[in-house]
Design a protein around this nucleic acid. Structure first.
Length: 576
RNA sequence: GACCUCGUGGCUCAAUUGGAUAGAGCAGCCCCCUCCUAAGGGGCAGGUUGCAGGUUCAAGUCCUGCCGGGGUCACCA
């Protein structure tokens, strides 16, 4: 059930009929015809731009087309009125029975209401978090985790075949640093005192890992040189860190389908194969890069490197894939990783990065474009910083001391539901303020509360009704829903399927959170109308009237539940 | 210097990817509880969408150039 799609289909049918009658030219392209809610509800229930879009190709003034279309549409039982307005908009008012029927459809579909087929048959890969396995996840990762997870759920709801994936950066130098840091904790576990060099990971979270290493190997590595213990300790340490990260993600309710190891690309010829694929396209060469204009690094010296001609696919400069010592740059395995995603048959890729990786976007897009010969689109979503506050005061993190606010800190303090919802109350590319106190506040300002409160009120009023002996789930006579305040809520429900498609098309899950806030607002408004007008209360002496009103409330709850499910939040049954 | 990103009432943000008279919430002023959760709601006031051009039936949205905030900038990942 998608009312906007239904009415759009009606508009297109009517246009075809007009063409058959000779009133319009045949074969007009109706691609651009849209049926949308008008910006101002006073204009009507729905508006179509059909006349304006078709005016030029039809060679007719828009208002003339709109007049023809209006006369045709009015024949349909669902359309109460069709008025031409402005430059050629056609404003439609729909019969009450349409909105009543919509409420019934929502209840019939349940939380499947709003599912779309737009992604049918399309395989999409969403890569998110992808934090280095060198420590627990912190707040910044939390935003990316929530965003990616909600986006994946949203796309699944829109019909896509979604894979959630985490790229483990376990191939670079930082995991060696991790291994050395764990080794020092291991030494400490043997009561040896150690000096912590600059650039190591001094966080307490490695103490138990050092202990665990001691439990596993005893004193076997104590007298050995690094060449002996580095590789096994590295593996031990990264495994421990991934366990930690997995449990952090689980605490937040994030479950990946695939954890993909960077290290697994080395020594298997996969990086070489990916670069060979680029080479075949003439995009690999040896050369020397110009220093960046304006700001030349202190230690700049011309160097001949192996370069990827990313400029052929929209990048600003070509990018090195191999260091001067012959080792791969970070970019090389990432190229291979994306090549692997392409060869696994994904039709679209989405990468969720932190905003500090913005400079990486063009080269990654260039690589995917080159490797898929332009067939596979990749959308890279950047998540901006999270600024922490406590009661309005900025909350400082000291990364140097290893004391940063972790994902687990946040989840333990405010819970996974609040964490997730709040992380989606801003669009991904805008900075987000997270105040530990305000997110728990029970007030209008807090959207988490506001939406949950709406659902709790619905649950509460259903309980009240049942206590009064009303069967709230009985088949209602929806024709009893006639008041404009009730219609307003029904109209908001009608927008849900449309919103899902827009949010999925733009890869913007925050739109779901904003929509829920609006829906909750409409519901609270209706609720309060009951203070002034007793006929708008949900529990009525007239059982049939009550059942109809409760059906509307239940439909609201259904959509809130479906929306919250996309965000990964459990609807509240009551407020405490 | 180059690239990315953002710029919308006093504050925090939306705006149906190009649609009509730019919408919400805070803060301010005025109202609404013998009544299902007032943990809420209704109303008033508040704007040249950073600036200047351009594209077209139509621009907060697209293009160009400025201004301002943030981010990034070859042997880090």
């Amino acid at each position: 059930m998608n009312l906007f799609a239904d009415i759009r289909a009606l508009v297109v049918e009517s246009l075809t009929a007009l063409a058959d009658e000779g009133a319009l030219p045949r074969g007009l392209e109706t691609q651009g015809v849209a049926v949308e809610p008008p910006r101002d509800a006073g204009h009507g229930d729905m508006a179509t731009n059909a006349a304006m879009v078709l005016a030029k190709p039809a060679g007719m003034p828009p208002r003339a087309i709109a007049d023809l279309l209006a006369k045709k549409l009015i024949d349909d039982g669902r359309v109460l009125s069709a008025e031409v307005a402005g430059p050629g908009f056609l404003n439609l008012r729909l019969a009450p029975s349409v909105w009543q029927g919509l409420v019934g459809a929502v209840l019939a579909d349940g939380t499947d209401y709003g599912r779309s087929a737009m992604g049918k048959g399309v395989k999409v890969n969403v890569e998110y978090v992808s934090a280095n396995p060198t420590g627990p996840l912190h707040v910044g990762h939390t935003r990316g985790a929530v965003f990616g997870d909600a986006l994946a759920s949203l796309l699944a709801f829109a019909g896509y075949d979604v894979t959630r994936e985490y790229y483990i950066n376990d191939g670079g130098a930082q995991v060696d640093v991790l291994a050395r840091s764990v080794y020092m904790r291991y030494q400490e576990a043997h009561d040896l005192s150690v000096d912590w060099p600059e650039g190591s990971y001094p966080g307490d979270y490695l103490i138990p890992v050092g202990e665990a290493l001691k439990d596993k190997v005893g004193d076997a590595y104590l007298e050995e040189p690094e060449s002996v213990w580095l590789a096994p300790v590295r593996e031990f340490a990264t495994d421990a860190m991934m366990d930690l990260i997995r449990s952090d993600l689980a605490a937040l309710g994030v479950k990946m389908d695939v954890f993909y190891s960077e290290k697994s690309l080395y020594g298997t010829g996969r990086i070489e194969a990916a670069l060979e694929a680029l080479k075949e396209r003439g995009l690999i060469y040896r050369g020397t890069l110009e220093p960046p204009k304006g700001k030349t690094p202190e230690d700049w010296e011309p160097r001949e490197q192996v370069l990827f001609r990313s400029t052929a696919h929209g990048d600003d400069v070509d990018r090195p894939v191999m260091k001067s010592d012959g080792a791969w740059t970070y970019f090389a395995p990432d190229i291979a990783y994306h090549y692997d995603k392409i060869s696994r048959g994904f039709d679209a890729l989405i990468d969720v990065f932190g905003a500090d990786h913005g400079g990486y976007v063009k080269r990654m897009k260039a690589a995917v474009s080159a490797l898929s010969d332009g067939r596979v689109p990749v959308d890279i979503k950047l998540c901006q910083l999270v600024r922490l506050f406590k009661n309005g005061e900025p909350f400082k993190m000291s990364k140097r001391a290893g004391n940063f606010v972790t994902l687990r800190d946040v989840v333990e303090q405010v819970g996974p539901d609040v964490t997730r919802f709040v992380m989606l109350t801003r669009k991904n590319d805008a900075p987000l303020d997270f105040d530990f106190d305000k997110v728990l506040e029970q007030s209008r300002e807090n959207p988490v509360f506001y939406v949950q409160y709406a659902n709790a009120r619905i649950m509460s009023v259903i309980r009240k009704a049942e206590e009064a002996g009303i069967d709230a789930s009985a088949a209602p006579d929806l024709s009893l829903l006639t008041h404009e305040a009730e219609m307003k809520v029904a109209k908001q429900l009608a927008e849900w399927p449309r919103l899902v498609e827009i949010a999925a098309r733009t890869n913007e899950p925050h739109r779901v959170a904003f929509y829920l806030n609006e829906l909750a607002g409409d519901f609270h408004a209706l609720w309060n109308r009951g203070n002034d007008d007793a006929s708008l209360r949900f529990v009525q002496d007239d059982v049939r009237a009550s059942q109809a009103k409760l059906a509307l409330a239940r439909a609201v709850s259904v959509v809130i539940s479906a929306g919250l499910a996309i965000l990964g939040v459990k609807p509240a049954q009551e407020m405490r």
